[in-house]
Design a protein around this nucleic acid. Structure first.
Lengths: 202, 202
DNA sequence: TTGCAAAGCGGACCCACGGTCCGTATCGTT
DNA sequence: AACGATACGGACCGTGGGTCCGCTTTGCAA
């Protein structure tokens, strides 16, 4: 194997940086303000260390994202209904989008930073590919629905971080209302009748 | 009136800058590469001039955008069907989104730069407000459709510049296919049956 | 315990880019 | 022609991401 065990202090510093960044992001608005130097300072390490651990800004953001996303990923990959793999497609799509929305609501500054930094567009990040692929597959299993690929993109676009931020931050749309609107919209896209209880489908 | 007629050379320089920027944007990929200094150089003026005319990068982008958008705006505000105001809502929504998509396809680098620069999110730009307001109104006139506000946001999100860029540039989805997919998707959102000829509705 | 690479540290340094400033050139009016 | 107002342009600045390299720490081994 190519694994070289990292030195103890290295591991500790990595954790410190992660923690500091996490903290700064949840504390401050406007991810612009969270500079790499400030993260390094908050973590009590030098900039060099930070870059060695994460490559660049995007790398750090991604690492943070992965860390926070872990439980969600688990739930989707092998959890119980309505998120887990044993759920019928319609409900699972609803559940997935709802989960994504909530996640972005709960991690606004980070998600904002991640999407806008991504050295270009968020569409190049492979975590996007993952969500898109999953959604695509699920949509493909819904009879009567065409263009699952594009539809997946469009649905994901409806929960983009900056839109969420705009609605939650500027328009002050409350969380539950947003969730309801998204569910309603999604149900419309999936065809059929707008779901009311979001859990009665064959 | 507060209008002070600008000096002749000022006007000429403004045009030169606009032209140069237009050219650079349509020529180069990755709007990152189009720096203000390079625009100034290409226009044969100093950076100071550029900033005096447009305030900042976003101002320049916006000016360019407005200029290119002019015909579209006219067509929407007072043109003939299916874009003009006399069109029934369903068709007009379809037509508007299609138009927007085509516009972004035709102005990829510029739109990309505009959306990602906007000193924050594209949602703070007032041209976004305009499109959203219009769409919102139109959607409100479609019976049986709820949450027109959110729906308008979601539909606009489906034609965001970076998504369009991703599909057209990376995934190499041909123009007509994208238009068809978008039309299909939109029709789904509007309720009812997926339109086939996109022009048979009461 | 001590010695000694290798791994890691950190902050001085670099560069690109957006944006400002002010001495100088041009306009256009009298 | 002459003079104020207007605009020019490029030197200059601040900021923030990313790099470099001499010094410190670690952990293995004698």
């Amino acid at each position: 194997m190519t694994e070289r065990k990292p030195r103890k202090d290295a591991a500790r510093n990595r954790q410190a940086v992660l923690a500091a960044a996490d903290d700064l992001f949840s504390r401050c608005e406007s991810p612009e303000g969270v500079t790499l130097a400030s993260i390094a300072a908050a973590a009590g390490v030098g900039k060099g260390t930070l870059f060695r651990s994460f490559g660049d800004r995007t790398g750090l953001l991604r690492a943070l994202y992965e860390a926070r996303l872990e439980p969600v990923r688990k739930a989707v990959e092998s959890g119980p209904a309505p998120l887990g793999p044993a759920t019928p497609p319609r409900q699972r799509v609803l559940a997935l989008l709802d989960t994504l929305l909530c996640f972005k609501l709960d991690n606004r500054p980070l998600m904002l930073a991640l999407e806008e930094s991504g050295s270009g567009s968020p569409y190049q990040a492979d975590h996007y590919e993952r969500w898109h692929g999953l959604l695509d597959t699920m949509l493909g299993q819904i009879p009567g629905l065409t263009d699952s690929d594009f539809t997946a993109h469009a649905l994901l676009a409806a929960v983009r971080a900056d839109l969420v931020e705009h609605l939650a931050g500027h328009a002050c749309v409350p969380r539950e209302r947003m969730r309801a609107q998204l569910a309603n919209f999604t149900a419309g896209v999936l065809g059929a009748d707008p779901v009311r209880g979001l859990a009665n489908e064959s």
